[in-house]
């Protein structure tokens, strides 16, 4: 088990936002986190990344307590948060530079990875010169350079149009297996959750709890045919049932 949380709870101004969160993330696993807006998914990510301290509970990485520590797990948001004043190479190299690696060395490392992420030739461009899909890929590569084992993805695809989104889903599944990364993926989109995840947690209620856990059996990488398969429909029905529709 790579990452584990034990009974995480957090409240703001006396209002409990999330309660007793026990989630696990295994090696090379993509775990979907599905729930309505405001249920506390982002709060959970802020806890995992160390930006917030939980009221109670622990976060363990490879068995070690990392509760409240920043600089270990970072996350990627719906907004790509590429810094507009930095060129793409500098944006992606940022986590390396923050760790104290020299800019030149960091650039070399970034350049080597650009083709794999479909970003060759963009190193000297500014984020404003890139398309939405490219920007998200650049943000994902930056996340990868921060921590190549785990990434937390907070609705990374939701700002994209449907076609770009589908293309990026396929690319995402192939790249994730290639670089052996484990992910927790927040999404509103049930189809996206099923298509990408090995396991799905459903978060609901107030305070938010993990109310169900659903395993998606299909092996990765998957193709778009999966989205119309019987297996897919069965899981979708189960999720809708969990969400009380």
């Amino acid at each position: 088990m790579l990452l584990e949380t034990q009974n995480l709870s957090k409240s703001f101004d006396g209002v409990k936002i999330i309660e007793d969160i026990n989630l696990t993330l295994n090696n090379n696993e993509i775990v979907g986190l599905l729930g309505v807006s405001g249920v506390g998914k982002s709060t959970l990510f802020n806890l995992l990344s160390g930006l917030l301290l939980p009221d109670s509970g622990k976060i363990l990485l490879n068995g070690q307590d990392i509760t409240g520590k920043t600089g270990i797990i970072s996350y990627m948001q719906q907004k790509d948060l590429l810094l507009p004043h930095k060129k793409i190479a500098d944006n992606i190299a940022l986590p390396l530079v923050l760790k104290g690696i020299k800019r030149k060395k960091a650039h070399e490392m970034v350049l080597k990875k650009l083709p794999e992420f479909g970003l060759e030739g963009t190193e000297h461009k500014y984020p404003d010169q890139l398309s939405g899909g490219m920007r998200q890929r650049a943000a994902l590569l930056r996340t990868f350079f921060f921590n190549s084992r785990i990434s937390l993805l907070d609705e990374p695809f939701s700002s994209l149009d449907t076609i770009t989104k589908t293309q990026l889903h396929l690319w995402f599944l192939s790249i994730i297996s290639k670089i052996n990364m484990s992910c927790i993926l927040i999404t509103h989109d049930i189809d996206e959750a099923i298509f990408l995840s090995d396991r799905i947690y459903i978060m609901s209620g107030s305070p938010g709890r993990l109310t169900s856990e659903i395993t998606v059996g299909a092996s990765r990488p998957r193709d778009t045919g999966f989205t119309t398969s019987e297996e897919f429909m069965r899981i979708k029905k189960e999720i809708l049932c969990c969400l009380h529709f």
Binding site: S49, Y75, Q77, K79, P95, L98
Partner: peptide
Amino acid sequence: DQINLLRAMGA
């Protein structure tokens, strides 16, 4: 959000 991102990266 940008500041939080960098904080999460340990800046």
